[in-house]
Amino acid sequence: NEEPLPEGWEIRYTREGVRYFVDHNTRTTTFKDPRNGKS
């Protein structure tokens, strides 16, 4: 039961299956979860 991502964020996966987060607001990507700060 995960809380929803902030507005404008999306979860994607690399070809290796590593989860990362896309911030469409700033057009950046990060491996850090914007909901809780954990990677």
Rank of each mutant, 00 (worst) to 15 (best):
N1G: 13
N1L: 13
N1Q: 14
N1W: 13
E2P: 10
E2T: 10
E2I: 11
E3M: 10
E3V: 11
E3H: 10
P4N: 09
P4K: 09
L5N: 02
L5A: 03
L5F: 05
L5S: 02
P6F: 03
P6L: 05
E7R: 13
E7K: 12
E7M: 12
E7D: 14
G8F: 05
G8D: 03
G8I: 02
G8H: 06
W9N: 00
W9C: 00
W9D: 00
E10S: 09
E10Q: 08
E10V: 08
E10N: 04
I11D: 03
I11W: 04
I11H: 03
I11P: 02
I11A: 08
I11E: 10
I11S: 07
R12D: 04
R12L: 10
Y13L: 07
Y13P: 00
Y13R: 04
Y13I: 07
Y13S: 04
Y13W: 12
T14R: 01
T14A: 02
T14M: 04
T14N: 10
R15C: 12
R15V: 13
R15K: 13
R15S: 14
E16V: 08
G17D: 04
G17I: 01
V18W: 10
V18K: 12
V18Y: 11
R19Q: 12
R19I: 14
R19Y: 06
R19D: 02
R19F: 06
R19C: 13
R19H: 07
Y20E: 04
F21T: 01
F21L: 01
V22Y: 15
V22G: 00
V22Q: 05
D23R: 02
D23F: 04
D23V: 01
D23Y: 04
H24I: 08
H24T: 11
H24W: 12
N25T: 10
N25E: 07
N25A: 08
T26K: 06
T26L: 06
T26H: 07
T26R: 06
R27S: 14
R27G: 15
R27C: 15
R27W: 09
T28W: 06
T28H: 09
T28V: 09
T29Y: 15
T29N: 09
T29M: 14
T30Y: 05
T30H: 09
F31E: 07
F31C: 09
F31G: 06
F31I: 07
F31D: 08
K32Q: 13
K32W: 08
K32H: 12
D33W: 01
D33C: 00
D33N: 02
D33V: 00
D33P: 03
D33E: 02
P34W: 01
P34S: 00
P34H: 00
R35E: 02
R35K: 02
R35Y: 04
R35G: 03
R35S: 03
R35H: 03
R35D: 02
R35T: 05
N36L: 12
N36A: 13
N36I: 10
G37N: 13
G37W: 08
G37V: 10
K38G: 15
K38R: 07
K38M: 15
K38H: 15
K38F: 15
K38A: 15
S39E: 15
S39M: 12
S39C: 13
S39Q: 14
S39Y: 15
S39P: 15
S39V: 15
